[in-house]
Design a protein around this nucleic acid. Structure first.
Lengths: 213, 213
DNA sequence: GTCATATACGGAGAGGCCCTCCGTTTATCA
DNA sequence: TGATAAACGGAGGGCCTCTCCGTATATGAC
């Protein structure tokens, strides 16, 4: 409700000649670290206490002062959005990470499980995102693309080696996933989604081995 | 922070069947009046200042104390929901009211204009409704039914006397209305919706008079 | 009209939360 | 090692929420 339109010119250190130049120092390590810890704590706090947690609580969990939180995230919307972006990036990024350490079929299966976690977070903070200034739809568009791409990558790889039927459309699969998770609001929805994912994966396997071992 | 966790159990609503069960006094007139004034003020305050207005502000506008507001609406969600319900009822109820004083075609036209006002209110308070406990979807379902019914009534009457083409489906019309109003978030959307409604009404008129004079 | 009383009113006050400001600490770099 | 920009922390002002309880008044009985 506050007219917080002004960002009040943070600091004015005595400047000799602040010319247009690139700051040469590299960013301080503690700053980066605290930023990361804040997002981590915020995610946990959202999950535990809902999207309305006090910012004090988030700072406390992160072990930093409230001033530090505000320096990194000047508005509540900023931290909510940052957490969401980070979730999306972690989910999308995990596709390649999983492909590096697992067989493509297993990577796909595991990624789908991660998707359920992602939706759990999103369910909590989406309302908060919604009441932020209207930029939410753009945010969703970009995140949707990242997730679509990750899904396609996994499906392509799994299809290429015959771990799943070759005619599976990654968009169909994504829609199925969304359906599993967005359905009812029962407290059991996560377990249910995970069971459905297992069943879906069974169904995705090719009817017969590509060739006998 | 003391043991005060009890909600004092909303006043027992009066029974409609005033049989043996309701030897109670009839509700005080000032109570009813204040409740009404609070909802009126809340609607105006939401429109002027957004859904996050302070409850103090709403009470002040209504000319009542903050205690009075809290007696009638124990939570913020309660007043938001009450305002929304009232909007829906007024919109739905205006269908019969308009039919009583206008020709059916005009009534339909006017009702569509009122629909734009309704959407304007809803746009503001929907985010607030969204972050209330999960009962919002049920609320929407019931309001949707009321609006659908009102629309059907108007379309039937207008169709019956030949004010509009006889083959118009009220659901189609409602979808069109929603499309007009939910489109872009430009500041001009209301004027645009009203213009589109006029055009739509022109299109709805039967191509020729029912029979020549 | 008068009275008794259930009902409703108002607003002070306690406690939270948001956000800013600025003195202190610390990481970088010369 | 020292200078300095960058980052930290948290006290404090201000607004908001919600409760409590003494006061006022509408209603119904007589």
């Amino acid at each position: 409700m506050n007219a917080k339109a002004e960002r009040p010119a943070l600091r004015r250190p005595r400047e000799k000649h602040a010319e247009a130049a690139a700051p040469l120092r590299k960013p301080r390590a503690d700053g980066q670290r605290n930023r990361e810890r804040l997002m981590e704590s915020a995610k946990a706090a959202f999950a535990d206490l809902g999207a309305e947690v006090s910012l004090d609580e988030i700072a406390r969990r992160a072990g930093v002062g409230i001033g530090t939180l505000y320096r990194h995230f000047p508005t509540r919307g900023a931290i909510v959005e940052a957490v969401y972006r980070r979730e999306v990036q972690q989910l999308a990024g995990s596709a390649t990470r999983l492909l590096a350490s697992l067989a493509p079929g297993e990577a796909l299966h595991e990624w789908m499980r991660l998707f359920v976690d992602y939706v759990a977070t999103k369910k909590v903070i989406a309302p908060a995102l919604g009441s932020i200034g209207g930029g939410a739809s753009q945010l969703y568009a970009s995140s949707g693309a990242q997730i679509t791409d990750a899904m396609r990558l996994l499906v392509d790889r799994a299809g290429a080696i015959g771990a799943i039927r070759p005619d599976v459309d990654s968009n169909d699969l994504l829609r199925a996933l969304v359906g599993f998770t967005y359905g009812v609001a029962s407290p059991d929805w996560q377990a249910s989604a995970l069971r459905l994912i297992d069943i879906l994966m069974d169904g995705l396997r090719p009817p017969r081995p590509i060739r006998a071992p």
